[in-house]
């Protein structure tokens, strides 16, 4: 069973969201998502300063196998991308919830976090897909 930390929020499209408590969130892809993708070889983080609605494709992760879009879990403005992944995309495989984070986003509406899945619902989704 994949590692699904209880303190994070999740999306149906396999992003995780960490509430930084200051109106910003950190976003990455889940352990389950990186397992499905296999070894990552390229990550294109979103451009800092761009604004997105929720569920918009904003970044790309590519494994040896295929390219996948990463979606904004909630609406907001990109304030930082994880540029270290340009030279070390494997960090997403090795540490999906830590060093493998993809971008930080300033929330358009703090309430939007309530729309995300908690760890239990995401676990149920992953199990249903298996």
């Amino acid at each position: 069973m994949s590692d699904i930390p209880a303190e994070l929020k999740y999306t149906r499209s396999h992003e995780w969201v960490r509430d930084n408590g200051d109106g910003t969130v950190t976003v990455g892809i889940t352990q389950h998502a990186q397992e499905l993708l296999g070894d990552l070889v390229f990550v294109e983080p979103p451009e800092v300063g761009s604004s997105y609605a929720a569920a918009e494709a904003c970044a790309v992760v590519e494994s040896v196998k295929a390219a996948s879009d990463v979606y904004t879990p909630v609406a907001g403005e990109i304030i930082e991308g994880n540029n270290a992944l340009a030279d070390a995309p494997e960090q997403v495989n090795q540490d999906a919830y830590g060093e493998g984070w993809l971008f930080k986003l300033k929330l358009a509406n703090a309430d939007d976090l309530g729309n995300l899945m908690d760890a239990d619902s995401y676990t149920a989704q992953v199990e249903a897909e298996a």
Partner: peptide
């Protein structure tokens, strides 16, 4: 088999 853990 697609891979046994890591294709790379």
């Amino acid at each position: 088999p697609l891979h046994y853990g890591s294709q790379l």
